[in-house]
Design a protein around this nucleic acid. Structure first.
Length: 771
DNA sequence: CAGTGAGCGAGCTTCCGCTTGACTT
């Protein structure tokens, strides 16, 4: 047993550090926070100056007991939790919970895991900074007060089990307000004029694509350009070439990693974090929950060496980035490979892809600027008021672009493609091949993705690297929002083309507004948001966190006493809670949509016991009818026609072989019901209009497929051998069993199946067919 | 993959941040 006990937060970190420190040091991990406010009640004694009631967390009792025993034997305990507010608090809680003597305890910090940093830390110990600890306590107490006073208001006024909090409620507000911006957005029609030219007298191989930068608000103006272009003389008015530099983006933080993994690899937040955790635990990357873009000296020089070896000296340029994001605590390095010389790693396909992304981003951050030559050609005509402009970018020196290019969020952003322009000189005559006036529509604001929401939260200084992914999953779990795909809508646009002196006009169709993996608010989320914004404005303010963080900083500097800060916040806040509770009317979004032409009754949409619904008849009408709203429909935006349409289903399609066929929309989309079976309609068929003939075809196709699924039937033991998604398997009643490798499923008999079932029930338990 | 849409009313729900497993499917 070592003389010295070092306690860090993460077990993976403990392992590495133990190697650096060698004999005489035992390094253990606390696995994060070990104590927290009591969960049973508020955990805060408001009367006694907001005194916190700390308890050792249930899942940490074992760790604490172990650390306590080790601390007793150690000559010196080194508290080496992270160098930030939370880390300081962990150190203090350890000191308290382990009962450490002051003379036997030292606090050390390092924000990179290198031998130098660690030995340096050991040589420069300090005491626990109580101002910083109290700043954390203020943060913790405030979050508990907000969360545990607001949530019960929602239970009473809206629905049980809902939640509200400083971070999640503002994130929800972003989603709801963006949705409203989109609903209120009216696309404006504009005309874009573009032309394809070639030098006069030359063949068509030297084509130049150019466009008029001005957008025309009406069709007439745009057509006018085409008219004037008929027989017009065009020539090159200017050829300009400009050089520009592009610098690489900084290495990854949690937030930028989540964004790029989402854009480039299509990973969800949780996929990214799970994969990063794997890489971290395997020792391939540094810590994955960080807000810092800092790289250690060692990493920078390793990157320099790799770049020089792989691409040459001219590609290397060492850089140190500085963190700009609000409220960053910078306890760790940026996310980077532990060894830059590892170009690839062993692991799952997902882990490999993520590692590759991290490697490229880190390497790129230490590479030279790219030099881009932009050529701009102006084509003008005396007959026209507007010039045509052609631009082309040429990479003169690729620099960091050799390995990495950052992606962008806006899905409509045009691909940056490189095309070359033919060599042209001013004054040269040009001939138009075609000139087009195309109708374009202004773009609505984009819906958030998980990753772009994180980006926004980080900009506002709301939430921390360890909470981005959990916050977003909480909003989903509460039913406040969904990550979803939505089909686009069709719209027509006008296009006029001038070719060979003749103008042709067409109306074309395009699909717009297709959404993939975007965040949509649900009715309950909209309701909760509006309720919170109306009654708790100050807490729902986008700047609330930023402002309160300034106060926490003052506590950390020793300028403000923590519970004075809390008292100042709590008094007006609690008053808002009390006042809201005395407003007796429970909140329920209800919208009158109009009158049902068939019955003359009122049609309305509201939230019912089981979610949003459409209703024909007033609430006190004993014969009122209900239908749940369909996926994608909101109380706020559903129309009378859409609501009435809901009542057309389920619909009888007809009869086939003596059984009824009905059609309806379920959780997984439209389906046919026939003899107790559900048959999906697919995208091509409309549940409101599908006819008997098409339905029969679908049913027949379904049965044909079912038959194919079956390999063998063993009725004597009630077993069936089926072809499933993961290959053949045995099905008995509701239980499924794997077939051992190397067995041909077609040769299975009752006896062998029995044996397989017996064996598998010994190892695994039969699957429960529950939720 | 339906249909439910309600004054008997227990006991429960919930926050943010720091960390990993221990569980199934």
């Amino acid at each position: 047993m070592g003389e010295n006990l070092v306690i860090v937060e993460s077990p993976a970190k403990a392992k590495t550090i133990e190697k650096f420190l060698g004999s005489g040091y035992t390094v253990k991990s606390s696995f994060g926070h070990i104590r927290d406010l009591s969960k049973k009640n508020l955990g805060i004694d408001i009367e006694k100056g907001f005194e916190p009631d700390y308890l050792i967390s249930e899942d940490k009792k074992k760790v604490v007991a172990e650390l306590k025993a080790l601390a007793k034997k150690a000559g010196m305990v080194w508290l080496a939790s992270d160098e930030d507010r939370e880390g300081e608090a962990i150190a203090w809680h350890l000191q308290e919970a382990l009962g450490l003597e002051a003379a036997k305890t030292k606090r050390i910090v390092f924000h990179e895991i290198t031998k130098d940093a660690i030995t340096n830390a050991i040589a420069n110990p300090r005491n626990v900074d109580m101002n910083l600890v109290m700043a954390q306590q203020a943060r913790r107490v405030l979050d508990r007060l907000v969360g545990f006073e607001l949530s019960p208001v929602l239970w009473k006024k809206v629905k049980p089990k809902l939640s509200a909090g400083r971070v999640q409620s503002v994130a929800l507000r972003l989603i709801v307000e963006r949705e409203r911006e989109i609903q209120q957005f009216a696309a404006k029609s504009q005309f874009k004029v573009e032309g394809v030219f070639h030098p006069a007298g030359s063949d068509d191989s030297a084509l130049v694509q150019a466009e008029v930068t001005h957008r025309f608000d009406n069709e007439k103006e745009a057509l006018d350009i085409l008219e004037k272009s008929k027989g017009a003389q065009f020539n090159i008015a200017a050829v300009e070439e400009k050089e520009s530099k592009r610098t690489p983006p900084p290495p990854f933080t949690t937030s930028t990693l989540q964004q790029e993994a989402s854009r480039k690899l299509g990973f969800s937040l949780s996929q990214t974090m799970r994969s990063a955790q794997n890489l971290y635990e395997a020792g391939f990357i540094t810590y994955m929950r960080t807000d810092s873009v800092n790289l250690s000296k060692m990493a920078i020089s390793a990157a320099k060496q790799s770049i020089t070896e792989l691409y040459g000296k001219e590609y290397s340029k060492t850089r140190q980035f500085t963190t700009k994001s609000k409220g960053a605590q910078e306890a760790h390095e940026a996310i980077r490979p532990t060894f830059m010389s590892n170009l690839t790693i062993e692991g799952s396909a997902q882990d490999k892809k993520l590692y590759n992304l991290i490697w490229k981003r880190t390497i790129a951050s230490q590479m030279a600027d790219a030099t881009i030559m932009r050529t701009q050609i102006t084509i003008a005509s005396n007959s026209l008021d507007h010039d045509f402009i052609a631009t082309a970018d040429r990479v003169a020196f690729d620099g960091f672009l050799k390995v990495y290019m950052e992606s962008r969020d806006d899905d409509q952003a045009e691909e940056e493609k490189e095309f070359t322009l033919p060599a042209l000189r001013p004054g040269q005559q040009m001939e138009p091949q075609t000139i087009k006036a195309v109708e374009k529509f202004t773009q609505k604001p984009p819906r958030y993705t998980e990753a772009s929401l994180v980006k926004k939260l980080e900009e506002l200084g709301i939430g921390r690297p360890s909470t981005y992914a959990p916050t977003i999953s909480t909003l989903t779990q509460r039913g406040y929002m969904v990550k979803d795909n939505r089909p686009g809508q069709e719209r027509s646009f006008r296009e006029h083309t001038l070719t060979a002196g003749k103008i042709t006009s067409k109306t074309k169709k395009e699909t717009w507004g297709t959404e993939k993996n975007k965040l949509f608010p649900e009715d309950i989320g909209i309701l909760v948001n509006d309720f919170l914004v109306e009654n708790f404005g100050p807490v729902m303010d986008y700047n609330f966190t930023a402002k309160i963080e300034e106060s926490f900083d003052k506590v950390a500097e020793g300028k403000v006493v923590w519970n004075k800060l809390i008292a100042d916040f709590y008094k007006p806040f609690h008053k808002m809670v009390d006042e809201t509770l005395t407003v007796s009317r429970p909140t329920n979004a209800e919208r009158i949509l109009g009158t049902d032409p068939a019955t003359g009754k009122t049609v309305l949409a509201r939230i019912g016991r089981f979610g949003p619904l459409a209703q024909i008849g007033d609430n006190d009408d004993p014969d009122k009818k209900f239908m749940s709203l369909a996926k994608g429909q909101l109380i706020e935006t559903i129309t009378l026609e859409e609501a009435l349409k809901l009542f057309e289903l389920p619909r009888s399609v007809g009869e086939y072989k003596g059984s009824d066929i009905t059609c309806a929309i379920g959780r997984f989309g439209p389906y046919l019901r026939y003899n107790g079976k559900f048959i999906s309609l697919g995208k091509e068929n409309n549940p409101y209009t599908i006819d008997l003939e098409t339905s029969i075809l679908l049913i027949e196709a379904h049965f044909a497929k079912e038959a194919q699924k079956q390999i063998k039937s063993l009725p004597e033991i009630g077993a069936e051998i089926l072809n499933g998604r993961f290959g053949p398997y045995i099905k008995i009643g509701k239980d499924n069993y794997k077939i051992p490798k190397g067995t041909d499923p077609a040769t299975l008999d009752a006896q062998t199946v029995k044996e397989i079932v017996e064996k598998s029930s010994k190892t695994g338990k039969p699957k429960k067919n529950g939720k």
